[in-house]
């Protein structure tokens, strides 16, 4: 049996998430809008950290998957699963916000730019990962298959990142990490860093909650699989030959 050493009903993660969200909101609203893009530039303070969390989550999924394959400890499988789920959510959020921004800036919902397209593909890769997890209730089999997929899927992430450099396209090239230093307004850079930091804290709190939930889900499955339940053969009894009358 899995023991729940942490209190799954702890409210602290919820408070941390709320505070992190609030900090991002206040920071994004207090900075002066971009001279060219106006109020719309505030989307960036959610879009960029969402994209960052997508990368972070999938990186954590890969690391946890690799650790599972090494240690064969289901705790690593739960971490990989939780992180992938959060990653899919933030990938979806980053894409949606990017589309809203794109419609206002470029006049189209979607552009066939490399980073956007590959981010969408990454979204489907991890949807596939989550779908794969639904194909069996056998904890160990599920963990093994998902772990192999988790390691394989991450081959995509560096491709997503470098594609923007390899392909000269519409999308904003990364504008902060450049050898000659950032070319944004310093107040915007600080706000962006605050939002990225807040989102990272939020990710940690969400992981804490999601892993607790995963542990409960696993414990339910394990409880059903312990020796107290009926074995498969007990469901089969001798046929009733009385004719049913």
């Amino acid at each position: 049996m899995t023991t729940l050493e942490r209190n799954p009903s702890s409210v602290w993660p919820w408070i941390v998430m709320a505070v992190a969200g609030l900090v991002t909101f206040v920071a994004a609203m207090s900075v002066s809008p971009d001279a060219v893009q106006g109020q719309l530039s505030r989307i960036m303070y959610v879009h960029v950290p969402s994209a960052w969390l997508a990368y972070l989550s999938f990186g954590v999924t890969m690391f946890a998957s690799a650790m599972y394959l090494w240690k064969r400890d289901l705790a690593w499988d739960r971490r990989a699963h939780s992180s992938a789920e959060i990653g899919v959510f933030f990938t979806g959020l980053a894409i949606s916000l990017g589309m809203i921004w794109g419609k206002s800036t470029w006049g189209v919902w979607w552009t066939w730019d490399a980073r956007l397209t590959l981010t969408a593909i990454m979204f489907f890769v991890y949807l596939g990962y989550l779908a794969l997890r639904r194909t069996t209730d056998d904890l160990d089999a599920r963990a093994k298959r998902a772990a192999v997929m988790g390691v394989l899927a991450v081959i995509q992430v560096p491709l997503v990142h470098f594609s923007v450099i390899w392909w000269q396209t519409l999308h904003q090239p990364p504008s902060i990490i450049k050898p000659e230093g950032p070319d944004m307004d310093p107040s915007m850079v600080v706000t962006l860093l605050i939002s990225v930091l807040s989102f990272t804290v939020m990710y940690a709190a969400m992981m804490y909650k999601r892993i607790d939930l995963a542990r409960i889900e696993d414990a339910v499955l394990i409880a059903e699989q312990t020796n107290t339940g009926p074995a498969a053969g007990e469901a089969v009894v001798a046929p009733d030959l009385s004719g049913g009358s």
Binding site: I121, V125, G128, L132, T135, V148, L152, Q156
Partner: peptide, 27 residues
């Protein structure tokens, strides 16, 4: 081949394999 072995004999196996392969074949 790898995707087919990952999915193996689970539920809706043959439907899931193309979903796993198609996005990963993008490179």
């Amino acid at each position: 081949t790898l995707a087919a072995s990952i999915v193996s004999t689970g539920r809706s196996a043959s439907a899931l394999v193309p979903l796993l392969v198609a996005p990963l074949s993008v490179p």
